[in-house]
C-alpha cells in the first residue's frame, strides 16, 4: 500500500510531466513516425522510383504515372535473370552444406572439453576476425590455379568457410541451451555417441538450425565482396550485376530501382513471414 501511494505522489519530476496530459503518448507517436520515416522511407522511395516511367523518376515530379515496364525490361535482360538464378543456387547450396558442417562443429564445441575443442574454438575466433579481403584476395589466385575460378565450387566453398567461422559458435550456444541428460540416457540405453547426436540432440536443435539456415541463406544472397572477386561471367551473382548497373546505367534510376526491389524480395519475404526465426538466429 505504501509503495502504491509513493508511486502516485512522491514521484520525482520528469521532463515529460511538462507535456500536456497525453504528452507521453504524443511523444511515443512522434518516435513511431520518425522510425517509420527513417527506416522505411528510403525503401519506399526506391519502390516508388521503380514504378515510375523513365522520364518521371525525379522526386520533384509528383504525377500519377505508374508503370510496370521497368520490371518487364529488367526481366527481359538475360544477364540479370542469369544472375538471379545463380544467386539462388549458390545461396541454397551454400546453406545446405554449411548447416550440415556447422551443426557437427557446434555440437563438438558444446559437448566436449579438452585441448582440441579449445584449439578449434581459437582457430574459429581468429578466422572470424581476419578481414575478408585478406584471404579472398589470394584465394582468387588459389582458385585460379585449382581451376575452380568462376565455377560454383569456387564461390560456394569460401562462403562455407565463412559460415563455419560465424555459425559454429552460435550453434554451440544452441546446443549449450539443450540439456545433455537426454543424450546421457540414450548412451546408457546402448546408443552410440553418433546415435545420441543424430537421434537425440539433433531433433531438439531443429528450430535453431532452421533459424540459422534462413540467416545463412540471406547472408549468402546479400554478400558482395566474394562475388566481386571470385565470380566471372559464368557465375555472376545478383549483387555484383547490380553494382555494375550502377556504373553502367548511371542515370537510369528507374531500371536500377526495379532490379534492387526484386533483389530485396527474399529479404522482405523472410522478414515478414519468418521473423521469429530471424530474431532467434540473430542472438549472439
Amino acid at each position: 500500500m505504501m509503495a502504491l501511494c509513493a508511486k502516485k505522489s512522491d514521484r520525482r519530476y520528469r521532463w515529460t510531466d511538462a507535456l500536456a496530459p497525453g504528452g507521453r503518448r504524443a511523444l511515443f507517436l512522434l518516435a513511431t513516425i520518425a522510425i517509420v520515416l527513417l527506416f522505411l522511407g528510403p525503401i519506399v522511395i526506391l519502390v516508388v522510383t521503380s514504378l515510375r516511367p523513365g522520364w518521371a523518376v525525379f522526386y520533384i515530379y509528383r504525377g500519377t504515372d505508374f508503370t510496370l515496364q521497368n520490371y518487364r525490361d529488367v526481366l527481359a535482360t538475360e544477364a540479370v535473370m542469369h544472375a538471379f538464378v545463380n544467386s539462388f543456387l549458390v545461396a541454397t547450396l551454400a546453406t545446405i552444406v554449411s548447416i550440415g558442417v556447422t551443426v557437427s562443429s557446434g555440437y563438438m564445441l558444446s559437448r566436449f572439453r579438452g585441448p582440441i575443442p579449445r584449439a578449434w574454438f581459437g582457430t574459429i575466433y581468429v578466422f572470424r576476425t581476419v578481414p575478408y579481403i585478406s584471404w579472398v584476395l589470394p584465394l582468387y589466385l588459389v582458385c585460379y590455379h585449382l581451376g575452380i575460378y568462376d565455377t560454383y565450387a569456387g564461390i560456394l566453398l569460401p562462403h562455407i568457410a565463412v559460415h563455419i567461422c560465424f555459425f559454429s559458435w552460435i550453434m554451440k550456444g544452441f546446443f549449450d541451451g539443450i540439456d545433455p541428460s537426454m543424450e546421457y540416457a540414450a548412451l546408457i540405453d546402448g546408443c552410440t555417441r553418433w546415435g545420441a547426436f543424430l537421434r537425440v540432440a539433433l531433433p531438439s536443435a531443429i528450430p535453431a538450425i532452421a533459424a540459422l539456415g534462413i540467416l545463412s541463406w540471406l547472408y549468402t544472397w546479400n554478400e558482395f565482396l566474394f562475388a566481386l572477386i571470385l565470380t566471372g561471367h559464368n557465375t555472376a551473382l545478383i549483387t555484383v550485376t547490380m553494382a555494375q548497373f550502377v556504373t553502367e546505367l548511371g542515370t537510369a534510376w528507374n531500371l536500377m530501382s526495379a532490379m534492387a526491389v526484386m533483389a530485396m524480395g527474399p529479404a522482405i519475404i523472410i522478414t515478414l513471414f519468418a521473423q521469429k526465426y530471424v530474431v532467434r538466429g540473430l542472438r549472439i
Binding site: N222, M242, I268
Partner: peptide, 20 residues
C-alpha cells in the same frame, strides 16, 4: 518488422538507396 528491414536487405542495395 520495419526496424528489422535495413538489416535484412543487402548492404549493396542499402548503399544504392542512400545514393539515390
Amino acid at each position: 518488422t520495419i526496424i528489422l528491414l535495413p538489416q535484412m536487405i543487402a548492404p549493396v542495395i542499402g548503399a544504392m538507396m542512400m545514393r539515390w
